[in-house]
């Protein structure tokens, strides 16, 4: 591939903690190889040198939370051949999407000494709410192995092997005894997309849903089971309002349970 033009890679940050970019930097063993295969044209967390667009592959981390973000993501889209949203913020609104369930102006007035300096959107939304994305890589943070798979697939023009089925399928393949069945621990695995390798169940915890909803989620049925395990509606609301609170299926379920909680 020596004489071929090296694809230009850009990494962008929006409303986020920078953890997904860190997941990329953490690929220590492969980072040099990636740097050899692509031209890292824009990646402020790694280097201050910035090469102008257009870019072949843009990775966007973070949710869209300000009018400036909204403008910037349109520009990124315009200058990118492929745009991939990475992480729970970029694909599900992130933890900051909790404000979608309240009045953002209230927060601004309470938190900031001079509210008028703050310019924010009423809702924290996934990138795909603002522009077309070519692919979404889930997780809080994204999984390094999946990031590598995505990059290899992009470089060699093949389809990435990123399943959209439930976390349970990975959990069972890894031979982890189900924490919900064997211990009565609430787990979001059945409604959450695979990808992390069932990290939390492997450590005896229920999944918190950081990879967002799986392809055909049925949160209502899972909530019913959680109630049988003794959880209250308020607790269920909180579970769905985690890392991907703005993802449609989780948002709907948290709102439905909230209504129930108020009625009871």
């Amino acid at each position: 591939m020596g004489e071929k033009h090296k694809p230009k890679l850009a990494v962008w940050k929006f409303g986020s903690c920078a953890g997904c970019q860190l997941a990329l930097l953490n690929l220590e063993d492969e980072l040099l190889e990636i740097a050899g295969a692509v031209e890292i044209a824009y990646f402020l967390e790694a280097s201050r040198a910035a090469v102008k667009g257009p870019y072949d592959l843009s990775l966007a981390e973070g949710s869209i939370t300000t009018p400036h973000d909204a403008e910037r993501i349109r520009e990124v889209r315009r200058t990118s051949r492929y745009l991939v949203a990475i992480g729970a913020c970029a694909t599900g609104g992130g933890i900051q999407a909790l404000r979608n369930f309240a009045d953002a102006d209230d927060f601004v007035r309470t938190v900031y000494a001079t509210p008028k300096y703050i310019e924010t959107l009423a809702e924290s939304m996934p990138v795909s709410d603002h522009v077309h994305v070519d692919f979404e890589l889930r997780g809080c943070p994204v999984n390094g192995r999946q990031l590598l798979e995505l990059t290899s697939a992009f470089l060699h023009g093949r389809r990435p092997n990123i399943p959209t089925y439930s976390l349970c399928i990975e959990c069972k393949q890894r031979q982890i005894p189900c924490v919900m069945v064997s211990k009565g621990t609430a787990c979001l695995g059945p409604v959450t997309q695979a990808g992390c390798g069932a990290l939390c169940p492997a450590h005896n915890r229920g999944c918190y849903g950081c990879f967002g909803p799986m392809e055909t989620p049925n949160p209502e049925a899972l909530s019913e089971q959680w109630k049988r395990l003794g959880l209250r509606d308020e607790e269920i609301v909180r579970a769905y309002r985690g890392f991907t609170a703005a993802a449609e299926a989780f948002k709907k379920e948290s709102e439905a349970r909230e209504k129930q909680a108020i009625q009871s």
């Binding site: 349970c168 695995g189 409604v191 055909t216 049925a221």
Partner: peptide, 8 residues
């Protein structure tokens, strides 16, 4: 209505 299509 109850199935999670989880594949377990």
């Amino acid at each position: 209505h109850r199935c999670l299509t989880c594949g377990n």
